[in-house]
Design a binder for these strands. Structure first.
Lengths: 110, 110
DNA sequence: TGACACTACTCCGCATAGCGATATAGCGTT
DNA sequence: AACGCTATATCGCTATGCGGAGTAGTGTCA
């Protein structure tokens, strides 16, 4: 199968999570996600996600000029974003447990 | 957020998995999924998934008349379906581990 | 100088897939 | 007759990740 479909609904969560490390700009967040093992994330997906999170008030944004390239648009978690992160985290854990149990009981092992 | 998005790409896997129990028809598969904890699965999603799995050759189908209602369209795993189930299972486990690690390292606990 | 590569962001349009609504239909219960 | 449960199918909507193209700034290397 395609990991593309698995990302649906989870990318928001992953982006919020890596932003707990420290504020970050799109391209950097992309690198953090890939470093975390989400190799197949496309850049357009991250930028799109950040725009949605911003519109939802889960992250704030500020632009910083850079010496070594184009300007950077930094994003930071808002209080709402932090709350949402923990809510979504719980939902994800519950969902993953359900799936794991479903597979375990039927001998679909890793 | 919505468990709807989390289901993307996983419903195929879940349907294949519950079919290892025994052959099943759509409505029954829906009940098995809900019994397994996937409460929010909609019937249309299951029927759509079964049609796709059938077209992909992962399940076979046969119709059985019923004494207690409308006819039932039974689906059974094919060899390809069984192979796919284990492949998809591995992909899912790997993906879930990646996400868990990403969340764990940032203190996003359940 | 020109070609290229990496960084960094944006926009357009596509594809996938789950869902709500609706329709059809058989059966049992009230 | 009306309702509800079982059972399937179809239509169109929607969300969201992605590919591709474009725009820029910087540095490298021949």
């Amino acid at each position: 199968m395609d990991t593309t479909q698995l990302l649906k609904g989870v990318l928001d969560l992953a982006v919020l999570a890596v932003l707990t490390d420290e504020d970050g700009y799109g391209y950097d967040i992309l690198r953090r996600l890939r470093a975390a093992g989400l190799d197949d994330v496309a850049d357009a997906s991250v930028y799109g996600t950040l725009r949605r999170l911003f519109q939802a008030g889960l992250v704030s944004a500020y632009v910083v000029p850079s010496d070594e390239g184009p300007h950077r648009k930094y994003y930071a978690l808002t209080t709402n974003g932090r709350d949402q992160l923990h809510r979504s985290g719980k939902v994800w854990r519950a969902f993953a447990s359900t799936m794991d149990a479903l597979l375990d009981e039927r001998g679909v092992a890793a």
